[in-house]
């Protein structure tokens, strides 16, 4: 394992010491490592286990339970397309299909340039703007194919650092 950058080490240390019991920081530590590695690779899991004093199994128990921790490689931008009932009512399926077709990936797949991963997501809490998706911590409202095209183009062009929880 190559050493972690010092800022990240400091950050991990801060996360663990900010709480009374290191276990509480488990998700935060995994977020931070996911941010660093791009996803939670096995090395990240071993790191997290070291930092938290938990076993890799205990962390795997959590990482695989949750939706926003990725144990397999994902693109720079993870597109969470809400597929719950309100968005469904507004033909979310076709938005989802459209995204997959435009990007040329199967559901859950990552584009070849490593930019995008398309995932269906549980209701993201933006139902009044259905259909909706969440990328980079930002909601995109009342999607249409044209709107999707615009978003993809904007993200492709942009140099914005992906924002994920960390």
């Amino acid at each position: 394992m190559s050493p972690l950058p010092p800022e990240l080490s400091t950050e991990l240390h801060r996360l663990v010491t900010a709480v009374d019991n290191p276990r509480e920081a488990a998700v935060d530590v995994m977020y931070a490592l996911q941010h660093h590695y791009g996803y939670l690779c096995d090395e990240a899991m071993h790191r997290a286990a070291e930092v938290l004093g938990m076993t890799t199994l205990e962390l795997e128990s959590l990482a695989t339970f949750y939706d926003y921790l990725y144990r397999r490689p994902v693109g720079r931008y993870v597109i969470h397309v809400c597929d719950s009932v309100v968005c469904w009512m507004f033909h979310q399926d076709s938005i989802f299909d459209y995204l997959c077709r435009t990007l040329g990936v199967p559901p859950g797949g990552t584009t070849e340039d490593g930019l995008f991963t398309v995932l269906p997501a549980a209701c993201v809490g933006n139902c009044h703007n259905a259909p909706t998706m969440l990328i980079n911590g930002r909601f995109y409202d009342r999607l249409t194919p044209e709107a999707v095209d615009a978003v993809i183009a904007e993200l492709r062009a942009g140099t914005e650092e992906p924002v994920r929880c960390k």
Binding site: M54, T55, L57, E58, E60, S61, T64, F65
Partner: peptide, 9 residues
């Protein structure tokens, strides 16, 4: 012991 347990949901 903590090396065996449930994963996923």
């Amino acid at each position: 012991y903590r090396d065996f347990g449930p994963m996923q949901n």
